[in-house]
Nucleic acid binder design. Structure first.
Lengths: 162, 162
DNA sequence: CGTTGATGTTTGCGCGAACAACTTTCTACA
DNA sequence: TGTAGAAAGTTGTTCGCGCAAACATCAACG
């Protein structure tokens, strides 16, 4: 009679609520450090990449932002001195975004509080077994909805495949 | 040495990737039906509420949108005839957003594909036990990060508490 | 009954992101 | 080698959203 209370809708709504609610809590620490969520996402992706650098389009692939969005984010971060652009030696169309010393420092200052936030609002709520199971499930879904989430990671080591 | 590969960062990143990746897939069906994700979220919240209606501010509370955002979403949906505003008889400041017949129809037409999408990208990837465990974990987190997610649900039945 | 503060909703403004068009450079193929 | 098409990145435009202010109404208190 009422098709609007299907358990699949509830499940999906729950996932969305958790994700946005968690992001809202964690975002407080970002803005206290003068960063938006997108800024942090960009910086941390760079920090976790080899040589602290990533091509603009790979950055776009990893962060669900469009390439024009990445252009502007990197513009902002470059203006603040947290990132710099570096030309790619083998492809003159491409640029790398590279984390600067200041960018590393900003992240380093931010991360302890961020990790504490993750504990408070997420990991400490679960037993280690619960957490492990949860992450395993997330990986299962991730591998299907995000087959290319590692763009630029392995290809950075096989330059010819770019 | 490198504090940027903490497992908590990975865990949080995984959750964010799954949520945004899933939203991106499901969003294709929404836009095929001429709706944005926010539109759908708004309509489905109304559909799942008693009498298919909700006060503007309760709608804002349920959807991580600001009240001004809700004003504009309802403006758009009202222009399309999917929702109408209805004054509250007991408080002349308040308005209800009410799903119209056309709104119900639009949702009803959309939902079969949406449910299939959720199956394809989410629930069918897991065993029933995995899914149940996953949802249980999500609820645990939700109860902490979103203590007021049910705004307007129970209060709609005790009008005096509004 | 009038005043003060709180609450619900809407509007002015500015920012941030997507889309599409454009420039430059690369790759493939003849 | 020269040309066609693809790919990387940037820019113009538009639109959605949050913030703060404004407006209307309510509740409490004298």
């Amino acid at each position: 009679m009422d098709p609007f209370d299907d358990p699949r809708l509830t499940a999906m709504g729950l996932l969305a609520e958790v994700s946005t609610g968690l992001a809202a809590e964690l975002g407080k620490t970002f803005s206290a450090a003068g960063l938006s969520e997108v800024d942090f996402e960009t910086l941390i992706r760079l920090a976790r990449s080899p040589r602290h650098q990533l091509r603009m389009s790979d950055l776009a692939g990893q962060t669900s932002l469009s390439t024009s969005g990445i252009t502007r984010v990197v513009d902002r971060l470059e203006r603040e001195g947290l990132v710099r652009r570096s030309p790619c030696s083998t492809d003159r169309r491409a640029s790398y975004a590279v984390l600067t010393e200041a960018g590393v420092n900003r992240l380093t200052a931010l991360i302890p509080q961020h990790l504490e936030d993750i504990d408070t609002w997420f990991t400490s709520l679960l037993t280690p077994e619960q957490l492990a199971t949860f992450l395993e499930t997330l990986r299962t879904i991730r591998d299907v909805v995000r087959p290319c989430a590692t763009a630029g990671v392995e290809s950075a080591e096989h330059v010819a495949t770019g």
